[in-house]
């Protein structure tokens, strides 16, 4: 039993980390009333920038490369997400359409520049990815230590910490209250002197930053290079986590952990007695089926922020 937990839990944490970061971005954006189908594209951008930066600067920066790579990816994706903000907040474009375009654009730009700079459809493998570590002291705790703190990626714990920070920001600060108000009833918020477009811009840019971190963490822990098939569906799975987690940061984290767990089972499940007879396909589609069931109200009611997806036009009812 201990062996099984020791192989499942670090893998689950490893697969969840990128989903948690990106889903938190989705929570910010959707809580402010901007639907973000573009999470996938923001992750693609993050993965692309993370890998390219890592390849270019690994000689100079040494072991610090992956950390600086995710920060750079965060900044670039945040800037990239402004396109979505401009289209859906200022230009009143359909947020879903704009999100679809973000996905296409990010992949187009990423692969175009990869071909332009490296002369082929995929980059080389990075020299400085994240490595697994044992967390000092904590990993010496009997049983728990070996399950949770041995051979894991620190990024997984940073992701979990981020979820708590996001919860604090959204539910315990004036900024968070305003952001949620804008997503529930923008007109009332506007009447109270909150700058609705400004809040939505900030929320979308936050989702870009977190999506960028998510994408680059995925690229630097799981994929190790960038090509058109580096990010396939992780962004949409993060979106599913947002909904399954009922638009709550900790809920989204829980959902992302669960999806990561399902993914890790589909990868290593065949070596575990309990799961060896479950066809892999059920584990692969589990996150998506569960999300539909959650939305349909079979697993608790998932209620979206009221003004989610509706452009705010001043003066209209």
């Amino acid at each position: 039993m201990l062996d099984i937990l020791q192989s499942i839990i670090p893998t689950a944490l490893f697969y969840s980390a990128p989903l948690i970061f990106t889903a938190l971005g989705g929570v910010f954006s959707e809580r402010s009333g901007v639907v973000n189908i573009g999470l996938e594209g923001l992750m693609v951008m993050g993965a692309f920038v993370g890998i390219v930066f890592n390849l270019t600067f690994s000689d100079v920066l040494g072991v610090w490369t992956p950390w600086i790579s995710i920060i750079v990816a965060m900044v670039v994706s945040a800037i990239f997400s402004i396109i979505h903000a401009v289209a859906s907040v200022s230009f009143h474009a359909s947020q879903v359409v704009s999100g679809v375009a973000i996905n296409m654009l990010a992949l187009g730009i990423g692969v175009y520049l990869t071909k332009q700079w490296y002369g082929k459809g995929q980059t080389d493998m990075v020299d400085q990815p994240f490595y697994t570590t044992n967390i000092p002291i904590l990993s010496d705790i009997p049983i728990i230590g070996s399950i949770f703190f041995e051979g894991i990626y620190i990024t997984s714990y940073i992701a979990i910490a981020f979820a708590f920070i996001a919860w604090f920001v959204l539910y315990r600060t004036p900024f968070g209250l305003r952001l949620r108000a804008v997503g529930e009833h923008p007109m009332a918020a506007d009447t109270n002197g909150i700058n609705v477009p400004r809040m939505r811009y900030i929320a979308v840019i936050l989702s870009g930053a977190l999506g960028g971190i998510g994408g680059s963490v995925f690229a630097l822990t799981i994929a190790s290079n960038f090509s058109h098939s580096t990010i396939v569906g992780q962004g949409f799975m993060a979106l599913a986590a947002v909904i399954f987690g009922k638009w709550h940061p900790l809920g989204a984290m829980g959902a992302a952990l669960f999806f990561g767990f399902a993914q890790s089972l589909s990868v290593i499940g065949s070596s575990i007695p309990l799961f060896e007879n479950v066809p892999q396909i059920f584990l692969l589609i589990a996150p998506y089926v569960l999300t539909i069931l959650a939305l349909a109200g079979f697993i608790g009611r998932a209620q979206a922020p009221k003004a989610n997806g509706v452009p705010y036009i001043k003066g209209s009812r």
Binding site: F91, V97, A101, I102, M104, L105
Partner: peptide, 13 residues
């Protein structure tokens, strides 16, 4: 792909 994505943005906006 970039051109098509931009066309979508322009139509949507």
């Amino acid at each position: 792909d970039i051109i098509i994505a931009l066309i979508i943005f322009f139509v949507a906006s």
